[in-house]
Amino acid sequence: MNSEVVLQVENLHVYYHRPGGFFSKRPPVMAVRGVSFSLHRGEVLGLVGESGCGKSTLARGILRLVEPHSGNITLLGMNFLGLKGKQLRQARRHIQMVFQDPYTSLNPRMRAGYAVEEPLIVHRMGSREERKQRVREIFHLVGLHEDDMAKFPHEFSGGQRQRIAIARAIILNPDVLLADEPTSALDVSVQAQIVNLFLDLKERFNMAYIFISHDLRLIEFVSHRIAVMYLGQFVEEGSTEAVMDNPLHPYTQALISSIPTLDEKTGRKKIILPGEVPSPENPPPGCSFHPRCPQRLPQCDRTTPELKEVKPGHKVACFLY
């Protein structure tokens, strides 16, 4: 793998302010609380966690679709959070996103060909003929037919619509692609096609992905590295082999043991956690996971463990280590 870092995120905090008026004392929801990681060219970082853990907010914060509260984002050496106006627009060419729901992420009144061409128009790239040519190439690459360019989103199936969304995201040749649950809304028999498309395109264009999913097995399949999120923080991060074969955090261990598999009878013990993920509006003090943790220590409800490297390249935020 190439060692060039394309994206570096340091101590990122993303907060949501809640409506309540000027005199409201409601504190903001701290959806992402101090996340740091770096992403190398051609690498896939899998982000896994349950609903409300902040994985989508993290992606939106990185793209500045939600303005982060604090922290640093370095994209290809640029201070991405410091960019404004035209510079920001130009930098966004290098980082694109594919959303979960291909039914809502496409404009129903826009023909597929135009939806894919639009980013080129926004960035004033190429002549009309060159743009059309490029759209034809991309349609071909994502497995759509040239005739599909004139169709409207409702004429496509879910899988085809996701192909259009992917075409739109990669037409500018981005260095980083964020994919937020890109197969969750699709039929099971179509999911594999879209996952394969992501992998093929990555090989071809040497993009780096942040692949977000609640499906740990899919994450295991596509990722080089895995980060596990719980209530706005990374609780574990490491190579796919390290995290899946030797999970350190009690939450990761429970998560892996809850995946239904067909080799159930091979003696794997299920760890059933009590309770559910608490609301990010009011995270527990100390380690956020302590109320559900089967291996809680006395200090866990008071002090927050730092994410630290306990083995080469394998980080965990837990007092057990």
């Binding site: 594999a192 899919l218 399949f221």
Partner: peptide
């Protein structure tokens, strides 16, 4: 088509 580590691509239904 159930994802398994070690596969390069997922066998898919067209």
């Amino acid at each position: 088509s159930i994802p398994r580590r070690g596969h390069k691509r997922l066998p898919q239904i067209p």
